[in-house]
């Protein structure tokens, strides 16, 4: 009887604590959505109400119609998309190499890649600007893609390596004895088996590239080549009164990464332990 009560109390506490965590995690996002659909005239009068008395999509319409956000959005999609594809390609080659070969210098190369995971990126903001500027790669989406790809390749490599490690070597050897070249075995056997992993890597890199702010801010000052984070930050510093529009833009920035999150959340553990460092 006493035991029963204790178990009951434990579960009440368990769920109560979890509820706190859920509220803490979701409330800021909830508020973002709430303000984005609150009409301007209710914003101040109903400031702390949990739900406005009536809602509107006017902020979204004006963000899409009257601001440069569609351009920023497009730029971000291009940069994040190109970065995720190139990073995943390069990381696939390197990850396969680390997973399947042992060679002189492997330890050194892996070590170098690990070090980059602890790298203070602020340290290289200035030199990168000076290096890319004469090459015409500042104020350019290509420049950002190159830089982001370099930043994301180490992490993506470790991630891909962990996916390749999970595919038994026997399968590939069986294919090679069956008459396949290494590349054919890779294409017909390894790729189909690591497809979910490839998708997860794409997602991780896309999210990271989508979220990057400092280098985008430093390298691309012209608004033609601004990414979403830069645009949003500029908007905040210039027109910091139109909260409805800002938050509507924020929700728009959140959508692609949330979609990726749902897609890759099954691989989160592998991803975070492979990098164990990157956010």
């Amino acid at each position: 009887m006493k035991h029963c009560l204790k178990v009951r109390l434990y579960w009440i506490l368990h769920y109560a604590l979890l509820a706190l965590f859920v509220v803490f995690a979701l409330f800021p996002l909830y508020w973002l959505v709430k303000v984005s659909i609150t009409p301007n005239d209710l914003l101040y009068s109903e400031g702390v109400r949990l739900w406005p008395s009536h809602t509107t999509f006017a902020h979204y319409v004006s963000v899409l119609r009257h601001t440069a956000f569609p351009l920023f959005f497009r730029n971000s999609v291009i940069v994040a998309g190109a970065t995720s594809v190139t990073s995943t390609l390069i990381a696939t080659a390197a990850g396969y190499c680390f997973s399947r070969f042992s060679f002189t210098g492997k330890f050194l190369i892996v070590g170098v890649l690990m070090v980059t995971q602890m790298f203070p990126l602020v340290m290289i903001v200035a030199p990168i600007f000076r290096l890319l500027s004469p090459l015409g790669l500042t104020n350019s989406l290509t420049g950002l893609v190159i830089v982001y790809t370099a930043f994301n390749v180490p992490f993506a490599t470790f991630l891909m390596q962990s996916f390749f490690d999970a595919v038994p070597r026997d399968l590939e050897e069986a294919a090679m004895i069956d008459g396949a070249s290494r590349f054919r075995a890779f294409r017909s056997i390894i790729v189909p088996l690591t497809l979910p992993g490839l998708a997860a890597t794409l997602g991780f890199v896309f999210t990271a590239a989508w979220s990057e702010l400092l280098f985008a801010l430093m390298l691309n000052s012209s608004s033609d080549a601004s990414t979403f984070p830069v645009g949003l930050l500029a908007f905040v510093s210039k027109f910091s009164v139109d909260f409805g529009q800002m938050m509507a833009a924020g929700v728009l920035a959140l959508l692609p990464v949330c979609a990726f999150f749902l897609l890759i959340q099954r691989h989160l553990v592998q991803g975070l332990t492979a990098g164990a460092v990157k956010g």
Partner: peptide, 29 residues
């Protein structure tokens, strides 16, 4: 699990802006 891990997916700049707004007496509670 899905709910509590969601903040990880939020871009860092957006989580910064979002919290700045939450602390702002004009729109934040």
């Amino acid at each position: 699990q899905l709910c509590v891990f969601l903040p990880w997916a939020v871009p860092s700049f957006l989580s910064g802006l979002n919290w700045a707004w939450l602390f702002n007496p004009v729109v934040g509670p």
